[in-house]
């Protein structure tokens, strides 16, 4: 599995339209055509991002100048957001909450997925069914009950108050992705390791774990992005800077005066919160070597 956007779009691209010129498409012509389509798709995805990047470097006056490139470059928006305690604490909250949720969900998900993929136990179908049910449950309908419950038991506006629902909704995702990965591992390798003289623990550590790693990292990325991007729970279950995450904090930004739209600072903040995700993906992508298990079995 890959998180490479280009690759994903490659597979889903519609068939090229038939040529009307009557010329047989040559190899080079075909390549050019695909390159054009690729550029189109990438541009479609990236232009809004670049627009936000450009906005974040514009001065307050230049915000509405309808030009793609800032006429006057400024770091002011970035300086502004880091001057406010609001954004910095939101950033800390976001990173902390997303990381803790990711770690817990991936650890629990790994164990559950291992069991689902490997073992036959009573209630296995029920477990898979229930986790699917949770994944499909509309989160919106849970917001007000959760709000009331958390206020009553004192979880409202705390880190655990967000971590708990994040784990709940990330776990089905984790179990699904991971069990797909675990099913791919040829279990004969474990037997082979045992024959080669490994204890069960050694077989797991030296053979199974290295092969499961790409799946675990992929899942970690997906879960982290899910937690990082959440707005619904973040806006409803927090009220102060003590646990408000960046997506929620953004909506509380104000301009320099109340008649001024805070577009510049919101853009700057949006750029900043994209950076951890990019880092996270880049860091783990090296470990996601597609087809790592190829060559283990058969020809």
């Amino acid at each position: 599995m890959s998180v490479d956007i280009d690759q994903v779009t490659d597979n889903t691209k519609p068939a090229p339209p038939a040529r009307t010129t009557g010329r047989v498409p040559s190899g080079a012509g075909k390549k050019v055509k695909w390159a054009l389509i690729d550029i189109l798709v990438v541009a479609y995805a990236l232009i809004p991002v670049l627009w936000i990047l450009s906005l974040s470097f514009k001065t307050a006056d230049g915000l509405n100048d309808k030009s793609f490139f800032p006429k006057e470059w400024t770091w002011k928006n970035y300086q502004d957001i880091f001057k406010t305690n609001e954004f910095v604490s939101a950033l800390v909250n976001s990173i902390g909450i997303a990381l803790i949720s990711t770690i817990i969900a991936v650890v629990l998900g790994t164990m559950a997925a291992y069991a689902v993929a490997r073992l036959d136990f009573p209630g296995k179908k029920a477990l898979v069914g229930v986790s699917l049910l949770i994944a499909m449950f509309p989160q919106v309908s849970l917001v007000s009950p959760l709000f009331n419950i958390e206020r009553n038991i004192g979880l409202f506006d705390t880190w655990p108050g967000l971590i708990l629902p994040y784990i709940t909704f990330a776990l089905p995702l984790a179990i699904y992705t991971l069990s797909a990965f675990f099913r791919e591992i040829p279990w004969e390798l474990e037997k082979a390791a045992k024959m080669d003289g490994a204890t069960p623990a050694q077989a797991f550590r030296k053979v199974i774990a290295p092969l499961a790693a790409p799946g675990v990292f992929t899942t970690a990325i997906l879960v982290f992005i899910f937690c990082w991007n959440d707005f619904l729970f973040a806006i409803s279950l927090t009220s102060t800077t003590s646990s408000r995450t960046v997506p929620a904090a953004l909506s509380f930004f104000t301009g320099a005066s109340q008649f001024e739209a805070p577009n510049g600072t919101i853009s700057a903040a949006a750029v900043i919160i994209t950076i951890p995700i990019i880092l996270f993906v880049l860091f783990f992508q090296r470990r996601i070597v597609a087809g790592l298990t190829s060559g283990a079995v058969k020809g």
Partner: peptide
């Protein structure tokens, strides 16, 4: 006895080579 204590080697149909 566990497989590792029997001192027997096995060649699997699928070869079961460690891909990493």
């Amino acid at each position: 006895k566990a497989p590792k204590d029997r001192d027997i080697a096995m060649v699997f149909q699928s070869y079961a080579l460690y891909p990493h």
